[in-house]
């Protein structure tokens, strides 16, 4: 078990130091893989499951826990590209990759500044990052690739709410794999 601590800079919390967590390599490899497998398998049986984005949650979780922007954006990039692989032939590789890279970077940068153990902050973080993720995807698809995309605020808001609620449980489950 490794335990590290980083000096706290620019306080948004009352703590003087924020904990930096580590994970064993099987967790680092198999949790994102499991998230992607569940994401492509469950919608066959559960109708509205596609509004849930497990790979995004896993990216946010690892980024927040490690608090290292480089690791965060690399993790996001890899998970995003894996997600791209299964999204069909009309879906170029890199669309989710770009979105999750940015989310991973920002989440880990945010993890340096605020308390991310609190369920309330986790809820808000997931909510905001889901909207951001959708916005980046929309921007890439519409702006770079000129794909016809529909943006619906209500749909995004509801999906973000569902993801934020589920993220509380997912994060609580993944907390078990943390090493200090």
């Amino acid at each position: 078990m490794s335990s590290r601590a980083m000096p706290f800079r620019g306080s948004l919390t009352s703590r003087e130091q924020v904990a930096v967590y580590d994970f064993s390599w099987p967790v680092v490899v198999f949790v994102p893989l499991a998230a992607i497998l569940i994401q492509i398998f469950i919608p066959v049986r559960v109708r509205y499951f596609p509004i849930i984005d497990l790979p995004l949650m896993v990216t946010i979780f690892f980024a927040l826990a490690r608090r290292n922007p480089v690791t965060g954006c690399v993790t996001g990039c890899i998970i995003g590209l894996l997600q791209d692989l299964f999204a069909g032939p009309a879906h170029p590789l890199g669309m989710y990759g770009i979105a999750l890279t940015i989310v991973g970077y920002l989440a880990s940068s945010l993890g340096l500044k605020i308390d991310v153990e609190n369920p309330g902050s986790r809820f808000l973080i997931t909510y905001v990052f889901f909207v951001l993720h959708q916005g980046i995807y929309y921007g890439v698809a519409h702006g770079l690739l000129r794909e016809a995309q529909v943006w619906s605020w209500s749909h995004v808001a509801l999906s973000a709410l569902a993801n934020a609620i589920l993220a509380l449980f997912v994060f609580a489950f993944l907390d078990r794999f943390k090493r200090r």
């Binding site: 994401q39 492509i40 919608p43 066959v44 509004i51 984005d53 997600q83 999204a87 069909g88 032939p89």
Partner: peptide, 15 residues
């Protein structure tokens, strides 16, 4: 048998 989907809302492909 349908064994999977794209897993995202942006693409609806099935496996």
């Amino acid at each position: 048998q349908v064994i999977g989907t794209s897993g995202s809302e942006q693409s609806r492909v099935l496996y």
